[in-house]
């Protein structure tokens, strides 16, 4: 327990130092990656720990993003209450989705979440008068200030992103070290057995969906606030696939995996796009290679080979 906490605090400390020392370009990238990694951390709660594969998480990310963006744009709210509005929207949506979608399992769950998310995406377009549809809208620099802190300043923004990520990371660590976390893993490994042992499987699954959805929404709200853009693209299918990829690459069911996966994927595309226009080809080949040689993902392999104690 102490070792876990120490490891995660050390990781946060390293990220903190990186925020002060990285060159401009990479500091900017890492700020963005930390927000996206928060999204992946949220996704991991459901997929990695509970074993439920959702193809619709973009709707939660978008709920947070639009929850914050719309009240700032049309209501003139300040960032903190707007952020809370984003969290509340994502939490509400995830409760509704949990109650309906958890009636299904396996591939049907994938499809139901996918279709809910697709409806959410189309709804954003349908109400284009306020959402400006696919084009989206910009949250002006002047509005992105919290208590005298300018969130558009690179260092401040990085630290805000790090704070968001750290809260999500420690929350998940706390969860998996509690009994609830153990039950979630139990559901992943053998749902029937967990039920036999007397645990309420459904309520734990609902907990997982809501926590996962709300964390994803926090990431969406964070993205809008820190990078000043709200758009329907973030509600599209590909943004549901991204966290799945990051988590699988980094290692599903590991606390640190989502960050590792997001960093890996970002720099893979960023670096290979400098070499060739066919960077998607490289990304494809790397995915295939990972499938063949590191199936548990990066942190999953680390845990398997060297550090079985990793949470």
């Amino acid at each position: 327990m102490i070792r876990d906490l120490g490891l995660h605090l050390a990781l946060i400390a390293v990220l903190f130092v990186l925020g002060l020392t990285l060159p401009d370009y990479h500091q900017g990238n890492m700020a963005r990656i930390l927000v996206l990694a928060t999204y992946a951390v949220g996704y991991n709660v459901l997929f990695g720990y509970t074993g439920l594969l959702s193809l619709g998480h973009a709707m939660f990310f978008a709920a947070g993003m639009y929850g914050l963006g719309l009240v700032m744009q049309h209501g003139g709210w300040s960032p903190v209450p707007a952020f809370i509005a984003g969290l509340v929207s994502a939490a509400l949506l995830s409760v509704i989705v949990a109650v309906l979608a958890l009636r299904t399992v396996g591939v049907a769950f994938m499809i139901v979440t996918l279709m809910f998310s697709q409806s959410a995406f189309l709804t954003i377009l349908y109400f284009g008068t306020w959402t400006r549809g696919d084009e989206g809208f910009v949250i002006p620099q002047a509005a992105r200030q919290v208590a005298g802190l300018d969130l558009t300043d690179p260092v401040t923004r990085y630290m805000a992103a790090l704070a968001l990520f750290s809260v999500a990371l420690l929350l998940v660590l706390w969860l998996v070290r509690r009994q609830e976390g153990a039950v979630l893993i139990g559901i992943r490994e053998n749902e029937e057995r967990t039920r036999m042992l007397g645990y309420n499987v459904l309520s734990h699954k609902i907990l997982a969906v809501v926590m996962s959805g709300t964390l994803s929404g926090a990431a969406g709200a964070g993205y809008a606030l820190l990078f000043g853009y709200v758009g329907a693209t973030f509600a599209s299918v590909q943004y549901s696939i991204f966290p799945l990829l990051w988590v699988l690459l980094g290692g599903a069911g590991t606390t640190i995996g989502p960050l590792v996966g997001a960093v890996f994927m970002f720099y893979l595309i960023d670096y290979s796009s400098g070499l060739t226009n066919a960077y998607m080809l490289i990304a494809g080949v790397v995915l295939v290679l990972l499938t063949l040689f590191a199936r548990a993902g990066i942190m999953g392999e680390v845990r398997k080979r060297w550090a079985p104690w990793l949470p």
Binding site: L248, A252, V288
Partner: peptide, 24 residues
């Protein structure tokens, strides 16, 4: 990968990217 369900999802996403880029 012995048709492992999770591994084949990632693997076929990889194939998707490769085919799409090849077509482009």
């Amino acid at each position: 990968v012995a048709y492992d369900p999770e591994a084949t999802i990632v693997g076929t996403i990889g194939i998707l990217y490769i085919l799409q880029q090849a077509a482009l």
